[in-house]
């Protein structure tokens, strides 16, 4: 069964700084991720994993090469279109949770609805998303009242609020203890297997490799192990 690629990267390059202080972070990365894939992106710090994730999510811009995500060629996608794509089809989970402290858990989860015209059943959907991560009773609590694991679950609920097709996770277990990290990993596996959500996870967590269908290793801005674009289909849920 052939699946439409959710992510297509061709010779993506990215550097920071200017002149002699230029640091090349991505040196021609090519990658293709089919729908329903769960990819673990591993490598040492500074290898370019997070930058690659940000470029895929439209949070950062590539200096060169082609980026095509969910059918959108980023070279011809306007900034508002990119914002809508992030709002409707891409979810983000960060290592530092990135919850807004002045909002309740429900407020954080339903935040994407603020930027969507005609959003309906916002509260009900927010409650459902919280229930899905086991925090249905925490809707009116502030993030400061939660443990790290609970915060990350609220962040996951926010990422899932609009039922995204692609979930991008940057070290999602990095700030969690082992047991909680395991719960999160299990949740991602379930999300991938049952709901068919495509996940790209930047991680140092070895256990993540056990649930990932593909493990891609990066070094010095290049993919050195795992898959390059055009590798064979690794299978997965339809």
């Amino acid at each position: 069964m052939t699946r439409e690629p959710v992510i297509q990267l061709e010779q993506v390059r990215k550097s920071y700084g200017e002149g002699a202080g230029t640091t090349q972070v991505l040196r021609g990365v090519s990658l293709e991720v089919p729908r329903g894939e769960l990819i673990a992106l591993v490598g040492q710090s500074g290898s370019g994993k997070s930058t690659l994730l940000n470029i895929v999510g439209g949070l950062d811009k590539a200096d060169g090469g082609n980026v095509r995500v969910l059918g959108h060629d980023y070279r011809s996608t306007s900034e508002p279109e990119l914002a809508r794509l992030r709002n409707k089809k891409i979810g983000f989970v960060f290592q530092a949770f990135n919850l807004l402290d002045h909002l309740t858990c429900l407020g954080n989860v339903t935040l994407p609805a603020s930027f969507a015209a005609g959003a309906r059943d916002v509260v009900r959907r927010g409650q459902a998303a919280l229930g899905r991560v086991g925090l249905g009773d925490f809707a009116h609590r502030k993030p400061s009242e939660l443990s790290g694991g609970q915060k990350q679950r609220v962040a996951i609920a926010r990422a899932l609020f609009n039922e995204p097709e692609l979930l991008l996770c940057d070290e999602p277990t990095g700030n969690l203890d082992s047991a909680t990290g395991h719960e999160v990993i299990e949740f991602f596996r379930e999300l991938n297997e049952k709901d068919g959500v495509t996940l790209m996870i930047v991680t140092h967590e070895r256990r993540m490799s056990t649930i990932a269908r593909r493990v891609i290793t990066m070094r010095d801005g290049q993919i050195v192990e795992g898959d390059q674009a055009g590798d064979e289909d690794t299978g997965g849920p339809a």
């Binding site: 949070l59 508002p80 914002a83 992030r86 990135n98 807004l100 935040l111 994407p112 603020s114 930027f115």
Partner: peptide
């Protein structure tokens, strides 16, 4: 800054 980054990540455009 971080808050603005979060807003952009969940779908806020530059205009928003």
């Amino acid at each position: 800054r971080r808050e603005i980054g979060v807003l952009r990540a969940v779908g806020a455009s530059q205009r928003d």
